[in-house]
């Protein structure tokens, strides 16, 4: 069995299209953190590189719950789409070849969410990525008890 030191090499083997697997294995790409404006609104860009069939970053971290404004770029030479979580309804955008659009999401936290490209089996080939919301629930929603040990 391969040991942990080989992680990067192994990830390189399974990352990308038509390598170890048919598609890119979910959650094996890059990770990035959204930036935050003074009013607390968060911003980030997610994109699809040419022939990657994967979102960059594959894990987007939000510092807290709230509103995030995404710029969504399709640099691929194929058409995709994006279906994202947001309170109220999922947000959908079609992404023609070489296109750029926007989405505004409202997300609770903490927790993480998956989103993907609902076209063919884009989701299975690698166009499924995560949005991780950090932070704690509001103080008034916490249990009235002393701080507890966490894993």
């Amino acid at each position: 069995m391969t040991i942990a030191e080989d992680r990067e090499a192994l990830l390189a083997e399974i990352g990308g299209q038509n390598k170890a697997a048919i598609g890119a294995v979910l959650g094996t790409g890059s990770i990035a953190k959204a930036s935050e404006r003074p009013d607390g609104t968060m911003e980030a860009t997610i994109r699809i590189a040419e022939d990657a069939l994967a979102w960059e970053p594959s894990v987007l971290v939000l510092p807290h719950a709230g509103t995030v404004e995404l710029t969504i770029i399709n640099d691929d030479k194929n058409t995709h789409a994006c279906l994202l979580p947001s309170n109220g309804d999922r947000k959908f955008i079609g992404l023609l070849n070489h296109s750029k659009g926007r989405a505004t999401l409202e997300l609770d936290g903490p927790g993480y969410y998956w989103y993907g490209s609902p076209a063919g089996n884009d989701e299975g080939r690698g166009l499924t990525a995560a949005i991780v919301v950090s932070g704690e629930v509001p103080p008034e929603a916490k249990l009235d008890r002393p701080a507890q040990p966490r894993p």
Partner: peptide
Amino acid sequence: TIEYVDAGEAINHSQLS
């Protein structure tokens, strides 16, 4: 540099029903 096609703003999924 080729300008991106404007994909616009994401819509509620239920609009497509």
